[in-house]
Design a protein around this nucleic acid. Sequence first.
DNA 1: TCCAATTAGTTTCCTAGGTAACTATTGTAG
DNA 2: CTACAATAGTTACCTAGGAAACTAATTGGA
Lengths: 142, 142
Amino acid sequence: MTTHTLFHTIHQLSRELTKQVNDTLQPFGLYSAQWAVLFVLKTKGSMSQSALCEYLAVEAPPMTRTVQRLAKQGYVGQTPGEDKRVKVIHLTEKAQQAYPEWEQAVLSMNDRLLECVPEEQRVFMQSMLNEWLGKMKGDLHE
Amino acid sequence: MTTHTLFHTIHQLSRELTKQVNDTLQPFGLYSAQWAVLFVLKTKGSMSQSALCEYLAVEAPPMTRTVQRLAKQGYVGQTPGEDKRVKVIHLTEKAQQAYPEWEQAVLSMNDRLLECVPEEQRVFMQSMLNEWLGKMKGDLHE
DNA sequence: TCCAATTAGTTTCCTAGGTAACTATTGTAG
DNA sequence: CTACAATAGTTACCTAGGAAACTAATTGGA
């Protein structure tokens, strides 16, 4: 087996999944990158922008853009922290209220996309891919 | 297990892999999208631009850009086909000559990235991910 | 204490990919 | 034969992400 195939498959899967998320959230005027931020803020609570970056493994510049767009749409607020450099991002009331609808759309999409993959395989894939990713990123710190 | 985690892991893996390819090919002035095209042309032979799109599962506009940049660098040529709409893309002598060096760099990168993943798991991942992708894309045609 | 190094965030510019609208050519039905 | 549909590629504009250079604030060391 050529390794090219594996890399290509992963790349293609990634593109297809974000496309699906975008299609699902389009009726709400949201994009996949925005959803990722909203999801983290909802499940983990308010946090600084850099914490969001670390959690989502994304560099600072794209996060600035995503947060600013969410702020413009009125879904997040940026309150200055005790350290005057940091901006603590939190969901607004508007976002809290709309969230269940968004979540329901995403969850049903997930079910649809994964209904053909047995639970057992899902867990297996997740653990293998995650372990691989961890080793790849870990090796870079040496 | 939440499905978000699986999606996020795949997305992150995809980004990390293309980043690695970019770093590997930077000394040669090439980017991952260009490499994908060069690799296909080398292994499958000359083909039309739309055939490249289908093979790499990419839309036409990005392919136009990638091919044009490769042409500007002198690595591919575009000869009009019998059908005057199509452009048949082929590797130039310059690319044929440089290819082994590129390939060697990419192959050693692959080895480095996959050395911590046993062959058995590699095959397993590939087959599961590919099957999933196929079902996802197949379901869309109904 | 005060200056240097670090950190949070932003700006600018790059690659990668997608959608919509367009041109030019080829096929096809009437 | 002609008009209309389909196809190959391009152009313009969008999201997503990364690297480098920058500003402002904080921390640490001489």
